[in-house]
Computed example of a mutant assay.
Amino acid sequence: MAARARSGDGEAFRRLVEPYRRELQVHCYRILGSVQDAEDLLQETLLAAWRGIGGYEERASVRTWLYRIATNRCLNALRAGARRPHDHAVHRAEVPLPEPSRRRAEPSWLEPYPDVLLDEVADHVPGPEARYEARESVSLAFLAALQQLPPRQRAVLVLRDVLGFRAAEVADFLGTTGNAVTSALKRARGALAHELPGPDRESAPLPGSPRERRIVDDFVRAFEAGDVDAIVTLLTDDAWLTMPPLPLEYQGPEAIRRFLSTVALRDGIRYVLLPTRANGQPAFGVYVRDPRTPILHAHGVLVLTLTGDRITALTRFHDNALLTNFGLPRSLRPDRPRTGRAEGEK
């Protein structure tokens, strides 16, 4: 197949790279944090691979060759500052926001990734040196922590600890030495240790399990009713509320209660939540009720992170453009069936 592709056979090239298309997009997403940027860089990767197929000598697998191209394309984009936030992605609060528990130095341009796309990733077993399970490595907590790392450290950690490539392979990808890779990985792991809780793989309910459905149903009832007290009872003591790209973060039931009562659910504002899934977690398209019309208007995407029988993080994305990634509409009629593409369709 590779020989035919090198001879200029476009169909042979397509068949050669197609099995890796979705996992390469997820790889770019981990490094860049944006679904659209990841798709753009995937297309650049495949174009570069097609142009360079004549030089592919099969000394590495096709998968390894493609990961090398994709990684360097992502790093080039980050170095060039090619990623620019869209104006509509910047949320402007309608009322003053309460003082946060923490302010990040920079905005986070992290976006949610639809589970329906994750389901299309081929089941490649990570290398023996991988430290993170597939589910952990696409969680919002992991992705948010990754975005705090310098680009090169970010790439090294993903290649080594998520995908399990050997240090020598990563050094070859990046045109550096094994010692440099080891040093970058050590710094990246140290930084992530300050951002991420320790591994707790057994405490989160399994996706679609009765326990997860019970927590999610309780949250939906409370949120749609505007019942701040009921929402707060579902939170862990160290729960976080974040709103990328805003650098403001609220921790703990009382801080979150204050935000909900004075901002999100103030003055009788009511919402409808349309279920979907993002980053392996329960998520919703959010729609606000307008007392002047029966039409409900889009109000972004909300993702829950669960631990045990409680919610440990609420991540609210205000950019309505994200809804299209989940097959969700920009407006909603009250009689619409309450399901989204990413939850019930493939």
Rank of each mutant, 00 (worst) to 15 (best):
A2T: 11
A5R: 06
D9G: 07
F13M: 06
R14D: 14
R21Y: 14
E23K: 08
V26S: 02
V26M: 06
H27A: 11
Y29T: 05
I31P: 04
I31K: 09
L32M: 05
G33E: 03
D37G: 15
A38W: 03
L47K: 11
A49N: 06
G52H: 06
V62T: 14
V62A: 13
R63F: 11
T64K: 05
W65E: 01
W65Q: 02
Y67K: 09
R68K: 14
A70D: 02
G81N: 00
H88D: 10
H91E: 12
V95K: 07
P96V: 00
P98G: 02
E99I: 04
R104I: 00
P114E: 01
D115Y: 02
D119I: 03
A122T: 10
V125I: 13
E129Y: 10
E129V: 13
A134Q: 12
A134K: 14
R135L: 15
S137N: 08
L140Q: 10
A144P: 00
R152F: 11
R154L: 05
L157T: 07
R160G: 09
R166E: 12
A167V: 11
E169F: 07
A171H: 04
D172Y: 12
T182D: 09
A184N: 13
A184R: 11
R187Y: 14
A188K: 01
R189C: 05
A191M: 03
H194I: 08
E195F: 12
G198V: 09
P199S: 06
E202F: 14
S203H: 12
P205Q: 03
L206R: 15
E212I: 04
I215V: 15
V216A: 01
F219A: 02
V220G: 05
E224C: 02
V228A: 06
V228R: 00
L234K: 01
D237Q: 12
T242G: 09
P244A: 02
P244E: 04
P245Y: 05
P245W: 00
Y250F: 03
E254S: 13
R258P: 01
F259T: 00
L260M: 07
S261R: 14
A264R: 15
G268L: 07
R270D: 05
Y271F: 15
L273Y: 07
L274N: 07
P275H: 04
R277Q: 08
N279V: 03
N279M: 01
G280T: 01
Q281V: 07
R292D: 14
T293F: 11
H297Q: 13
V303D: 00
T305V: 14
T315A: 12
L323E: 00
N325K: 08
G327Q: 05
S331A: 13
S331W: 09
P334R: 08
T339F: 14
T339W: 13
R341W: 13
E343T: 03
E343R: 15
G344S: 11
E345N: 09
